[in-house]
Each structure stands twice: as structure tokens, then as C-alpha cells.
């Protein structure tokens, strides 16, 4: 896990996806081949840091590795460039959550291996409205 995290840290820290140089379609997670035009010429592109909630849930039973964090709010956010991104939503009272809420990215701890293991960081979202 530590190495697969290292490999993707720019993706997680900066919401670094990619973009088709032919048709400008943007992707997060990045794609290998453009889904819209089939081009294989793609360059890294940072996604915009703001968007709106399309759907969300409050997960009460978390997976192994996330113990102690429950409940966690997870949402699918449509960023301002139209790309849909999955992410946790933090610092938001449950009753303030609504489809359509504006959000922005924040830099947070995702989880840690153990008190002696590595800490994994990445983007999450926080509600603006």
C-alpha cells in the first residue's frame, strides 16, 4: 500500500487527472485512452478545486483500515469542469448536506497503516454553502 500510494500521491494531493490533447476531454481518475475520441495523447491536468454534490451517503460501517473514523460522508461531486469525482466530505453537519451543495477540495489525512505505519494524505471535500 505504501508504494502504490507513493505512485499516485500527485493524483491524491492535487486532484491531478488528465486531459486529451485532441478533444480536451478531462478525466479524474486519469484514463489511458480518451473515452470521447479514442486519442492516446493525454497530458496531466489538475482538476478545479470546486464543484457541487450530485449524491452522497453517510457510511456508518467503515472498511478495514478506516476504523475509528466512522461515520464518514462520501459523495460524488461534479467539478466545475464537469468531471465527476468520488470523495469524502468533511467538516459538514449531516443536516446541512444536500444534493447541489457547493463544495471545495481540502487536503486531509485519508488513513494510516497503524500508529507505527505510514500516513496517507489526499483530497477531500468540504461544503461551502
Amino acid at each position: 500500500m505504501a508504494i502504490s500510494y507513493w505512485r499516485r500521491r500527485d493524483r491524491y494531493y492535487r486532484l491531478l487527472g488528465n486531459k486529451c490533447t485532441r478533444c480536451n476531454a478531462e478525466y479524474y481518475p486519469p484514463v489511458y485512452i480518451c473515452r470521447r475520441c479514442g486519442s492516446e495523447s493525454l497530458i496531466d491536468a489538475e482538476m478545479p478545486g470546486t464543484g457541487k454534490i450530485l449524491t452522497y451517503t453517510i457510511l456508518r460501517e467503515v472498511m478495514s483500515g478506516f476504523e475509528g473514523q466512522q461515520p464518514i460522508i462520501i459523495g460524488i461531486v461534479q467539478l466545475d469542469n464537469g468531471v465527476k469525482v468520488l470523495g469524502q466530505i468533511v467538516d459538514t453537519p449531516i443536516d446541512a448536506l444536500k444534493i447541489g451543495c457547493k463544495v471545495r477540495t481540502v487536503f486531509r489525512k485519508i488513513r494510516e497503516e497503524s500508529s507505527a505505519g505510514q500516513i496517507y494524505y489526499g483530497y477531500k471535500f468540504t461544503v461551502l454553502c
Partner: peptide, 11 residues
């Protein structure tokens, strides 16, 4: 996706 779904805690 282990890298983009499981990583963030989305079961």
C-alpha cells in the same frame, strides 16, 4: 478501483 475508490474509504 483500489486506487481511486477503495483508497478514499468508499466501500
Amino acid at each position: 478501483s483500489a486506487e481511486y475508490t477503495q483508497f478514499i474509504g468508499a466501500s
